[in-house]
């Protein structure tokens, strides 16, 4: 079937049937860009610009105040306690849920997600009701001399509550997708349960795990509502960085407030950068739900 040569026609440029006109396309991109600029980029710029309003020295001076340093120390301490605990919980919950079939699994997942849908203020409130005056535990703790509320343990507990689901939420869908084939193969080759987890499961989930830890840590360091309820705001003792921001702001010490805030903002940017990197490494599809 040789074709007769056809006189060249003027090339006709048609849009393919599933795309919008260039004008509409440009318009939508513009709307999205302007909206994101207003809602996301402008506040971020405001944080740094307000911190540097009196120059970098003023901002650095505000950060080297004893209270600011104490707040940074406490924030790191709280994260160092709560993130590993939630990490262990997340791995353990994901193992039980993803590798086994049992009744009520969906309900258990809903319960694990619960802290996401509870107001952070209520997270603080429940611990006040649990340990505060007039509560069931108050008399015992008083006699034992244990102080939970308006002390570091309360701050840690509130933080654990609000960051509770992060690691589990990331790992459960990931491990469900991976199924049990690899583990069964390892066991059939004579590996022990612990060896199977360490040598087979862990390498498969390490990126998802890191991703969950990253988000968990960001929230742990940045939590405000729950912590503010149980902290008591004892300067240099129970004030985390977000609380320090609030205190300074309410004292009209704006430069100092924004200086501390910009450290938190840098942390957020670092988190986003690492998150983007992780997504590139192991693909968005494996990064779980991102609903938190």
């Amino acid at each position: 079937m040789s074709s007769k040569s056809v006189p060249p026609t003027a090339p006709i440029v048609f849009r393919d049937a599933t795309s919008e006109s260039p004008l509409l396309k440009a318009g939508l991109i513009a709307v999205a860009a302007v909206f994101l600029a207003l809602v996301l980029f402008l506040p971020l710029a405001a944080v740094f610009s307000e911190a540097l309003r009196r120059g970098p020295t003023a901002a650095l001076a505000a950060l080297s105040e004893a209270d600011a340093l104490a707040a940074i120390r406490l924030t790191v301490t709280v994260a160092l306690i709560s993130v590993p605990l939630n990490l262990v919980f997340g791995v353990s919950a994901a193992w039980a849920i993803a590798k086994f079939d049992f009744k009520g699994k969906t309900f258990l997942i809903t319960l694990i997600d619960l802290p996401f849908s509870v107001s952070p203020v209520i997270a603080g409130l429940v611990y006040i009701l649990l340990f505060g005056t007039g509560s069931l535990f108050a008399p015992y703790m008083q006699s034992a001399g244990v102080q939970i509320l308006f002390a570091v343990p309360g701050v840690v507990l509130a933080t654990i509550f609000v960051t509770f689901p992060f690691v589990a939420r990331e790992l459960i869908p990931l491990m469900q997708d991976q199924g049990t084939g690899d583990e069964e193969a390892a066991l059939s080759l004579g590996a022990s349960g612990w060896q199977t987890f360490r040598l087979v499961t862990l390498p498969n989930i390490k990126w998802g795990l890191l991703y969950g830890v990253l988000l968990c840590n960001a929230r742990a360091m940045g939590e405000f509502g729950a912590v503010s309820v149980v902290s008591g705001r004892l300067r240099g003792e129970t004030v985390t960085m977000p609380l320090q921001v609030e205190i300074l702001y309410n004292e009209y010490n704006f430069v100092a407030a924004f200086a501390v805030a910009s450290v938190l903002a840098l942390l957020a940017l670092l988190t986003l950068g690492l998150k983007a990197l992780l997504e590139q490494v192991y693909g968005r599809n494996h990064t779980g739900s991102s609903k938190h």
Binding site: S3, V6, P8, T9, P11, V13, F14, D16, A17
Partner: peptide, 10 residues
């Protein structure tokens, strides 16, 4: 169908 367009021909 017109879901794609030829480089040449009709």
């Amino acid at each position: 169908a017109g879901l794609d367009f030829p480089t040449d021909g009709s």
